[in-house]
Design a protein around this nucleic acid. Structure first.
Length: 383
DNA sequence: CCATAACTAAACATGG
DNA sequence: CCCATGTTTAGTTATG
């Protein structure tokens, strides 16, 4: 039996032992990002990036602007009942991220050059990308630590290597669990994408693309769009952000990207997030569940790698943060294809993806809104 | 109603 | 002693 486990022993699974190079990050100095927000409120960005990222291997997306920020930009401002307050200046609205702590941590770690971070930098990353937490009670840090400790997806690595002010360890993602995290991320990000497999309640509009066809021919499933989008989000944001070198931090917390509630004090409790829950249920099955149930890792990994193999996945992560082309998996299409064939498909996909992206975003937005208000009402109800 | 997952809170230990 | 970090436990909430 060949080694399936690319253990951490050698260090973080990325071959390089994590050093604490970027250990001292600017903590939470970042909530400022006014620039260019106006221009971000269109879907072009996503269309283009979607296409660039996912049409047959265009690894270098050219981010025109911040990603998901704009996803709901179109209607973000007119938040119905309980939508988060928008900073008139276009600053980040401090809305609660729709990601579980696990995913937040995961993203933070993966975005670091070394694929490992001390808790402090994880805090930093989160604060940076989710200004929501800057106003939140400090309990979230506890949650982060709790998650690091408890969640087997994360591994503690000795920061033995010359970190002067080293207190605590570095944390990295267990490569074996990475597929699960990715999967979680997929499912987490755009619940609305599920509309792609289940027929919409209302008859598809004329603009609705033949999604199944599209997605199939694309050789990844609809859920991949989620991950893809999320990754894109992480990848193509201007100023590739890790706590160490973040110029223009990506703001995942933008109302448009992920909107939940925006009042940290009032509603800091993640558990009340309907949006999150609805999606993280499934995602969590690939995360914590495999922590707690004590199922042996190789099994869970193997199970998780039905779709894509963890080792293969590792290729996808380059040194500079999340290079996430989609995981290679047994493709329904025969690969390699001829260039011509690829090009043809690409052209088709360009069209379809554009539409699909639009629909997806629309759905995502609607869903977020509805979930948001639903959550509030239910919570109220409870009380 | 139950199981599960995510989150929160708190206590406690350890080390700088 | 303080603080950051790390672990553990218990409780809450939401969902399937």
């Amino acid at each position: 039996m060949p080694e399936e486990r690319t253990g951490l022993r050698g260090g973080c699974g990325m071959g390089t032992l994590p050093e604490a190079e970027c250990a001292s990050s600017p903590l939470a100095t970042s909530v400022d990002r006014a620039e260019g927000d106006e221009e971000l409120t269109n879907l072009n960005w996503l269309h283009e990036n979607l296409l660039q990222n996912f049409t047959l291997g265009g690894p270098e997306a050219q981010p025109s602007a911040s990603p998901l920020l704009d996803i709901e930009g179109d209607y973000g401002d007119q938040g119905p009942s309980g939508t988060p307050p928008h900073d008139r200046m276009g600053h980040a609205v401090k809305s609660k991220p729709p990601f579980s702590f696990s995913l937040l941590i995961y993203m933070a770690i993966e975005q670091s050059p070394r694929k490992s971070l001390p808790v402090k930098d994880i805090y930093g990353w989160i604060l940076e990308h989710f200004p929501y937490f800057s106003n939140a009670p400090t309990g979230w840090k506890n949650s982060v630590r709790h998650n690091l400790s408890l969640n087997k997806c994360f591994r503690k690595v000795d920061r033995s290597l010359g970190k002067a002010n080293g207190k605590g360890s570095l944390w990295c993602v267990d490569p074996e669990y990475r597929p699960n995290l990715i999967q979680a991320l997929k499912k987490q990000h755009f619940p609305a994408a599920h509309a792609f497999c289940t027929p919409p309640a209302s008859p598809p509009s004329a603009s609705s693309p033949p999604r199944h066809l599209l997605l199939q021919s694309c050789s990844f499933k609809e859920s991949d769009i989620d991950a893809a989008t999320a990754m894109m989000l992480l990848n193509s944001a201007p100023g590739h952000h890790d706590p160490c070198n973040s110029d223009v931090p990506l703001d995942l917390s933008r109302p448009d990207s992920v909107l939940v509630s925006s009042d940290p004090k009032q509603d800091h409790n993640y558990s009340s997030m309907a949006l999150q829950r609805c999606s993280s249920r499934s995602s969590s099955s690939s995360l914590s569940s495999l922590d707690e149930d004590g199922c042996d890792r190789s099994q869970s990994v193997r199970a998780g790698s039905e779709g894509f193999h963890s080792e293969e996945d590792m290729d996808l992560w380059d040194d500079k943060g999340m290079q996430l082309s989609l995981p290679r998996r047994p493709a329904p299409i025969k690969w390699p294809m001829s260039k011509r064939a690829r090009h043809e498909i690409k052209v088709e996909l360009d069209e379809e993806l554009k539409e699909a992206a639009g629909s997806l975003l629309h759905l995502a937005g609607i869903r977020s809104c509805t979930e948001g208000s639903k959550r509030k009402s239910t919570k109220h109800h409870r009380k």
